[in-house]
């Protein structure tokens, strides 16, 4: 696979490490949320057959964490963003 890194351009997927569902961005506040909320955050996934937002880390590169929007059926990648930008944007809309 090829991931179009927003800063570095097209890069082979072998340069990256895969983490999983990008909902890991939305970590609850541990001083507020309890075990149940954290359990949902950590374990519950939608596992779609289709478009999926997921976290990839450019370990053999610039160490950026990326949010990659990938179709789990076709592997087509429609969007790649810096996770930092996505996280900041999600916070603003909260």
């Amino acid at each position: 696979m090829i991931i179009h890194h927003p800063i570095l351009g097209p890069r082979d997927a072998q340069e990256f490490v895969y983490l999983g569902d990008a909902n890991l961005i939305d970590r609850p506040d541990g001083m507020v949320a309890g075990v149940e909320v954290f359990h949902d955050y950590l374990y519950n996934r939608t596992n779609p057959a289709g478009e999926h937002q997921e976290l990839w880390y450019h370990e053999q590169g610039d160490r950026s964490w990326l949010v990659v929007t990938r179709n789990t059926v076709t592997h087509e990648i429609t969007r790649v963003e810096l996770a930092r930008d996505v996280a900041r944007a999600r916070r603003r809309t909260k």
Binding site: L24, I25, E59, A83, R84, A87
Partner: peptide, 18 residues
Amino acid sequence: AVAVFRHLEFCRQVLWPE
């Protein structure tokens, strides 16, 4: 060593970018 560094980058960029 590698996994911790990756995790710290995750915390820094993804969880607490501010």
